[in-house]
Nucleic acid binder design. Structure first.
Lengths: 111, 111
DNA sequence: TTATTTAATCGTATATTTGCGATATAAGAT
DNA sequence: ATCTTATATCGCAAATATACGATTAAATAA
């Protein structure tokens, strides 16, 4: 396929797509739910909750972190992850822009 | 990798992930924007707007349709696509459930 | 009937994602 | 110093996604 053509789209489109991609796996949705429900963030127990190997969970956490959806700090042999609400707020707005704003001017579907 | 383990997660997690996946490419975001902005839906011009080959655009449209984000009807040699606002509404609520509801009980990030 | 137009599908190449076991790393416990 | 615990990273295999050209299908125009 030669090259991915992502760079041919606007930054806003790319950002929104990247955010969606980070959410595009049930394991990552599940991780976010766990992180959101706990108030403290010693988060090793995620591995025990998810039906996946430790290395796989670690990889999903890395993806969420790279996408900016979660913060993480290494803390000795343990790690500490928690949700980056600021980023969520930003992207929630982007989604609203896509979902809601456009809906106003085009209420009825034509097919 | 043996098998994808999607089936090990809840239906709600899978559905939300599937919706996010459909949005997880800038071309599909761009397509949705075009569809939302036009009130009529003779939508062949999408191919001319996007920097992608006709077959590739057709594939992206198929994915959006399979995910339920758009409706499409074959109409002779032409096709007619438009946004399925109902599905968007549903998933917008799912996102709110993930984004907003959980935020209330956990306002401050701990790392 | 035969072209033309529009869009879907097929075949294929390449890139990316997912998953796991094995290994490495790093701090604390013994 | 060595063992243990908690995570990250590496290397690999298999599955999926992305992209395109070529072909097919289906309706209309000539």
């Amino acid at each position: 396929m030669a090259i991915h053509k992502k760079e041919a789209f606007t930054q806003r489109e790319q950002d929104l797509a990247a955010f969606a991609k980070a959410l595009a796996h049930p394991a990552r949705i599940a991780i976010l739910k766990v992180l959101a429900q706990r108030n403290e963030c010693i988060c090793g127990e995620i591995v025990e909750i998810l039906p996946l190997a430790q290395s796989t969970v670690s990889q999903h956490l890395k993806e969420l972190k790279n996408a900016g959806l979660i913060n993480g700090s290494v803390d000795g042999p343990r790690s500490c992850y928690c949700i980056n609400w600021k980023a969520f707020e930003k992207f929630n707005q982007e989604f609203s822009w896509l979902f809601t704003n456009l809906k106003i001017k085009n209420e009825k579907s034509c097919c």
